[in-house]
Protein backbone atom coordinates (compact mmCIF):
# COMPACT_ATOMS: atom_id res chain seq x y z
CA UNK A 1 0.00 0.00 0.00
CA UNK A 2 1.34 3.40 -0.93
CA UNK A 3 -0.04 6.87 -0.37
CA UNK A 4 -1.35 7.24 -3.93
CA UNK A 5 -3.37 4.06 -3.75
CA UNK A 6 -4.64 4.91 -0.27
CA UNK A 7 -5.79 8.36 -1.33
CA UNK A 8 -7.11 6.93 -4.60
CA UNK A 9 -9.31 4.46 -2.75
CA UNK A 10 -10.39 7.11 -0.25
CA UNK A 11 -11.26 9.41 -3.14
CA UNK A 12 -13.28 6.59 -4.69
CA UNK A 13 -15.14 6.09 -1.41
CA UNK A 14 -15.72 9.85 -1.19
CA UNK A 15 -17.19 9.87 -4.72
CA UNK A 16 -19.64 7.09 -3.84
CA UNK A 17 -20.58 8.84 -0.57
CA UNK A 18 -21.05 12.25 -2.25
CA UNK A 19 -23.40 10.76 -4.83
CA UNK A 20 -25.42 8.84 -2.24
CA UNK A 21 -25.70 11.91 -0.01
CA UNK A 22 -26.74 14.10 -2.93
CA UNK A 23 -29.52 11.72 -3.91
CA UNK A 24 -30.61 11.11 -0.32
CA UNK A 25 -30.60 14.75 0.84
CA UNK A 26 -32.26 16.23 -2.26
CA UNK A 27 -34.59 13.19 -2.59
CA UNK A 28 -33.72 13.36 -6.28
CA UNK A 29 -31.40 11.75 -8.77
CA UNK A 30 -31.83 14.46 -11.41
CA UNK A 31 -28.65 14.87 -13.44
CA UNK A 32 -27.32 11.47 -12.41
CA UNK A 33 -26.90 8.75 -15.03
CA UNK A 34 -28.60 5.56 -13.84
CA UNK A 35 -26.77 3.69 -16.59
CA UNK A 36 -23.34 4.74 -15.33
CA UNK A 37 -24.30 3.65 -11.81
CA UNK A 38 -25.65 0.35 -13.12
CA UNK A 39 -22.39 -0.24 -15.04
CA UNK A 40 -20.35 0.50 -11.91
CA UNK A 41 -22.47 -1.99 -9.94
CA UNK A 42 -21.83 -4.61 -12.66
CA UNK A 43 -18.09 -3.79 -12.48
CA UNK A 44 -17.90 -4.31 -8.75
CA UNK A 45 -19.95 -7.51 -8.76
CA UNK A 46 -17.92 -9.10 -11.57
CA UNK A 47 -14.61 -7.93 -10.12
CA UNK A 48 -15.24 -9.09 -6.57
CA UNK A 49 -17.02 -12.30 -7.53
CA UNK A 50 -14.68 -14.19 -5.20
CA UNK A 51 -16.62 -12.71 -2.28
CA UNK A 52 -19.65 -14.75 -3.36
CA UNK A 53 -17.74 -17.94 -4.10
CA UNK A 54 -16.05 -18.36 -0.76
CA UNK A 55 -17.26 -17.87 2.74
CA UNK A 56 -16.45 -14.30 3.65
CA UNK A 57 -15.11 -13.55 7.05
CA UNK A 58 -14.51 -9.86 7.54
CA UNK A 59 -10.98 -10.17 8.78
CA UNK A 60 -9.36 -7.68 6.46
CA UNK A 61 -9.95 -4.17 5.24
CA UNK A 62 -9.84 -5.20 1.59
CA UNK A 63 -12.88 -7.47 1.90
CA UNK A 64 -14.75 -4.79 3.84
CA UNK A 65 -13.93 -2.24 1.11
CA UNK A 66 -15.13 -4.64 -1.60
CA UNK A 67 -18.39 -5.22 0.25
CA UNK A 68 -18.85 -1.46 0.74
CA UNK A 69 -18.29 -0.82 -2.99
CA UNK A 70 -20.77 -3.52 -4.01
CA UNK A 71 -23.47 -2.60 -1.50
CA UNK A 72 -23.15 1.16 -2.01
CA UNK A 73 -23.34 0.87 -5.80
CA UNK A 74 -26.30 -1.53 -5.64
CA UNK A 75 -28.02 0.81 -3.14
CA UNK A 76 -27.38 3.80 -5.45
CA UNK A 77 -29.06 1.87 -8.29
CA UNK A 78 -31.97 1.03 -6.01
CA UNK A 79 -32.44 4.75 -5.21
CA UNK A 80 -32.28 5.74 -8.89
CA UNK A 81 -34.45 3.00 -10.38
CA UNK A 82 -36.90 2.41 -7.53
CA UNK A 83 -37.10 4.82 -4.61
CA UNK A 84 -36.59 8.09 -6.52
CA UNK A 85 -37.53 6.73 -9.94
CA UNK A 86 -39.86 9.72 -10.57
CA UNK A 87 -36.87 12.10 -10.50
CA UNK A 88 -34.70 9.97 -12.81
CA UNK A 89 -33.85 11.78 -16.01
CA UNK A 90 -34.30 8.74 -18.27
CA UNK A 91 -34.84 10.73 -21.47
CA UNK A 92 -31.47 12.40 -21.22
CA UNK A 93 -29.71 9.24 -20.05
CA UNK A 94 -29.85 7.95 -23.56
CA UNK A 95 -26.44 6.43 -24.25
CA UNK A 96 -26.90 2.74 -25.08
CA UNK A 97 -25.29 0.71 -22.30
CA UNK A 98 -25.02 -2.38 -24.50
CA UNK A 99 -22.62 -0.49 -26.77
CA UNK A 100 -20.25 -0.45 -23.79
CA UNK A 101 -21.03 -3.84 -22.23
CA UNK A 102 -20.77 -5.94 -25.41
CA UNK A 103 -17.36 -4.60 -26.59
CA UNK A 104 -16.00 -4.84 -23.01
CA UNK A 105 -17.14 -8.47 -22.82
CA UNK A 106 -15.75 -9.26 -26.28
CA UNK A 107 -12.42 -7.63 -25.55
CA UNK A 108 -12.20 -9.42 -22.19
CA UNK A 109 -12.53 -12.77 -24.00
CA UNK A 110 -9.86 -11.78 -26.54
CA UNK A 111 -7.31 -9.90 -24.43
CA UNK A 112 -6.81 -11.36 -20.96
CA UNK A 113 -4.00 -12.84 -18.91
CA UNK A 114 -5.64 -16.22 -18.55
CA UNK A 115 -8.68 -17.82 -20.22
CA UNK A 116 -10.49 -18.68 -17.05
CA UNK A 117 -13.99 -17.63 -15.90
CA UNK A 118 -12.94 -15.58 -12.86
CA UNK A 119 -10.08 -13.96 -14.75
CA UNK A 120 -12.28 -13.06 -17.72
CA UNK A 121 -14.88 -11.54 -15.37
CA UNK A 122 -12.11 -9.52 -13.71
CA UNK A 123 -10.81 -8.33 -17.11
CA UNK A 124 -14.37 -7.52 -18.23
CA UNK A 125 -14.87 -5.40 -15.10
CA UNK A 126 -11.65 -3.50 -15.78
CA UNK A 127 -12.60 -2.77 -19.41
CA UNK A 128 -16.15 -1.87 -18.44
CA UNK A 129 -15.02 0.46 -15.66
CA UNK A 130 -12.83 2.29 -18.19
CA UNK A 131 -15.90 3.43 -20.13
CA UNK A 132 -18.64 3.28 -17.46
CA UNK A 133 -18.55 7.04 -16.87
CA UNK A 134 -19.47 7.80 -20.52
CA UNK A 135 -23.29 7.73 -20.01
CA UNK A 136 -22.84 10.26 -17.18
CA UNK A 137 -20.68 12.57 -19.32
CA UNK A 138 -23.12 12.10 -22.22
CA UNK A 139 -26.04 13.06 -19.95
CA UNK A 140 -24.25 16.25 -18.92
CA UNK A 141 -23.51 17.12 -22.54
CA UNK A 142 -27.20 16.56 -23.40
CA UNK A 143 -28.64 18.65 -20.57
CA UNK A 144 -25.81 21.16 -21.00
CA UNK A 145 -25.18 21.53 -17.27
CA UNK A 146 -24.08 19.77 -14.11
CA UNK A 147 -25.10 20.60 -10.57
CA UNK A 148 -22.15 21.56 -8.40
CA UNK A 149 -22.56 18.49 -6.20
CA UNK A 150 -22.55 16.23 -9.29
CA UNK A 151 -19.34 18.00 -10.37
CA UNK A 152 -17.78 17.22 -6.98
CA UNK A 153 -18.79 13.59 -7.44
CA UNK A 154 -17.15 13.47 -10.87
CA UNK A 155 -14.05 15.21 -9.59
CA UNK A 156 -13.65 12.67 -6.76
CA UNK A 157 -14.24 9.80 -9.20
CA UNK A 158 -11.68 11.22 -11.67
CA UNK A 159 -9.15 11.90 -8.91
CA UNK A 160 -9.38 8.27 -7.87
CA UNK A 161 -8.35 7.25 -11.39
CA UNK A 162 -5.57 9.83 -11.64
CA UNK A 163 -4.15 8.77 -8.25
CA UNK A 164 -4.14 5.15 -9.42
CA UNK A 165 -1.84 6.15 -12.29
CA UNK A 166 0.59 7.66 -9.77
CA UNK A 167 0.24 4.43 -7.77
CA UNK A 168 1.23 2.36 -10.81
CA UNK A 169 4.27 4.57 -11.47
CA UNK A 170 5.25 4.13 -7.82
CA UNK A 171 4.73 0.35 -7.92
CA UNK A 172 6.64 0.00 -11.18
CA UNK A 173 9.52 1.92 -9.69
CA UNK A 174 9.67 0.39 -6.19
CA UNK A 175 8.02 -3.02 -6.55
CA UNK A 176 8.57 -3.81 -10.27
CA UNK A 177 4.83 -4.46 -10.32
CA UNK A 178 3.14 -4.08 -13.72
CA UNK A 179 -0.43 -5.10 -14.53
CA UNK A 180 -0.70 -4.06 -18.19
CA UNK A 181 -4.46 -4.59 -18.57
CA UNK A 182 -5.28 -2.50 -15.49
CA UNK A 183 -2.81 0.22 -16.50
CA UNK A 184 -3.97 0.61 -20.11
CA UNK A 185 -7.66 0.58 -19.12
CA UNK A 186 -6.94 2.97 -16.24
CA UNK A 187 -5.13 5.44 -18.48
CA UNK A 188 -8.00 5.35 -21.00
CA UNK A 189 -10.45 5.96 -18.17
CA UNK A 190 -8.46 8.89 -16.80
CA UNK A 191 -8.24 10.52 -20.25
CA UNK A 192 -12.06 10.52 -20.39
CA UNK A 193 -12.07 12.81 -17.34
CA UNK A 194 -9.62 15.37 -18.75
CA UNK A 195 -12.22 17.58 -20.39
CA UNK A 196 -14.27 17.51 -17.20
CA UNK A 197 -11.20 18.34 -15.06
CA UNK A 198 -10.65 21.42 -17.19
CA UNK A 199 -14.25 22.57 -16.67
CA UNK A 200 -14.06 21.78 -12.95
CA UNK A 201 -10.95 23.89 -12.45
CA UNK A 202 -12.09 26.80 -14.61
CA UNK A 203 -15.70 26.89 -13.31
CA UNK A 204 -16.52 24.95 -10.14
CA UNK A 205 -13.39 25.95 -8.21
CA UNK A 206 -14.30 29.58 -8.94
CA UNK A 207 -17.79 29.05 -7.55
CA UNK A 208 -19.62 28.68 -10.84
CA UNK A 209 -21.79 25.84 -12.02
CA UNK A 210 -20.78 23.89 -15.12
CA UNK A 211 -22.87 25.13 -18.04
CA UNK A 212 -21.92 23.98 -21.51
CA UNK A 213 -22.40 26.22 -24.54
CA UNK A 214 -25.55 25.25 -26.45
Amino acid sequence: MNIFRLFGDLSHLAAIAILLLKIWKTRSCAGVSGKTQLLFAVCFITRYIDLFLHFVSLYNTEKVMKLIYISASVFTCYLIFFKFKATYDGNHDSMRAEFLIVPAAGLACLINTKFDAIEILWTFSIYLEAVAILPQLFLISKTGEAETITSHYLFAQGSYRALYILNWIYRYHYESHVDTIAIVAGVVQTILYCDFFYLYITKVVKGQKIVLPA
Binding site: D9, M65, E119, A182
Partner: peptide, 10 residues
Protein backbone atom coordinates in the same frame (compact mmCIF):
# COMPACT_ATOMS: atom_id res chain seq x y z
CA UNK B 1 1.67 -21.19 -11.83
CA UNK B 2 -0.75 -21.70 -8.98
CA UNK B 3 -3.76 -21.27 -11.25
CA UNK B 4 -5.30 -18.24 -9.63
CA UNK B 5 -4.00 -14.85 -10.64
CA UNK B 6 -3.72 -12.39 -7.83
CA UNK B 7 -5.10 -8.94 -8.34
CA UNK B 8 -4.30 -6.96 -5.23
CA UNK B 9 -5.81 -3.63 -6.21
CA UNK B 10 -9.44 -2.69 -5.65
Amino acid sequence: DNGQLFHDEL
